Simulated scan of single mutants.
Amino acid sequence: MNHPLAAALLLFATLTASASEAPWRPLFNGRDLTGWKIVGAQPRAAAYVEDGALTGHMLRGTPEHTFFCTEEAFGDFILELECFQSGGFNTGILFRCIQTPADAAVRLHGYQVKIDPSPTRRWTGGIFDDYGRNWLWLQTLEHDERARSAYRFNEWARFRIEAVGRTLKVWVNGVPTAHLLHDGYTRGPIALKIHSFPAKGDAAQEKNLIRFRKVRILTADLARHALPTDLPAREADPTQKVLPKP
């Protein structure tokens, strides 16, 4: 056995052992919304449990995003979950969320790991700051074809998010997609987004579903269970301008 292969096998064995020993805690029981609440102004999008998954689809005439939101808040953590997206469903995984003012365009904002419905951009696994009718990309996948190819529609995809202090790391199907340093949100619930849908939207979009399952979290001994990434850490650009939401 050559040395590079031996080293790779040793690393794989170490990571596998570390994962098996990790004190994961399930956040979703697969049966009902225990530990979760639905957040969003009325009328809300459809959000329910079906076939062991948190399931949602957009409904026309919903003026705001609707969220599956944990009742518990988290600061530093490692989160894993699986997501299945059919059609052009616009969604994402928010964390360290905070409540917005009553007159805001959305009830929650925070860091969002984007699940990107665009077949050309393909920035699933990038991170942006989501706050109502405006958003600010903090890390895109613009020049990373490996990351852009990690996610596929109509298949279950595994997401891993590590949020430890100001260091944020993301993997999609085992592929590192983001490694960001940012002094922003520090603590809050985790929320899974169902996008708002104007009354004049295409009714066919209502058939598209988003499903989340196998949601679990680590909140202790994170340094031991954190995974290495070959993406260099990127400091968020403090001069980047807020872009209007399309």
Rank of each mutant, 00 (worst) to 15 (best):
K114W: 15
W171S: 11
A45N: 03
L138H: 00
V164A: 13
A53V: 05
D103R: 11
F95L: 11
Q139L: 01
R224V: 05
S20K: 11
T120E: 14
H182F: 09
L227I: 09
A147C: 05
D51R: 11
K114A: 15
A102Q: 12
G125D: 00
F159C: 12
F12M: 14
D130H: 08
R44A: 13
L10K: 10
I78E: 07
A46R: 06
D129M: 01
K245L: 15
T239P: 04
A8G: 11
C69G: 09
R25H: 07
S149T: 05
R224N: 06
R216D: 01
E162G: 11
D144E: 00
T100D: 10
T70K: 04
R213T: 03
L141Q: 06
H182M: 01
L11H: 14
A6F: 04
T16F: 07
L192I: 10
G201S: 10
T229L: 02
A157F: 12
D116M: 04
L108P: 10
E71Y: 10
Q42E: 11
C69M: 00
R107M: 12
A204H: 15
D116E: 06
Q99L: 11
E82N: 09
D103Y: 10
D76G: 10
W123G: 01
P119M: 14
K114G: 15
E21T: 09
T100A: 11
H109M: 10
A8W: 14
E72L: 12
P26C: 05
I161V: 00
T34I: 04
G56V: 03
R60V: 02
V242F: 05
A223G: 11
I115A: 04
F28W: 03
T34D: 13
A220H: 13
A6K: 07
E64W: 12
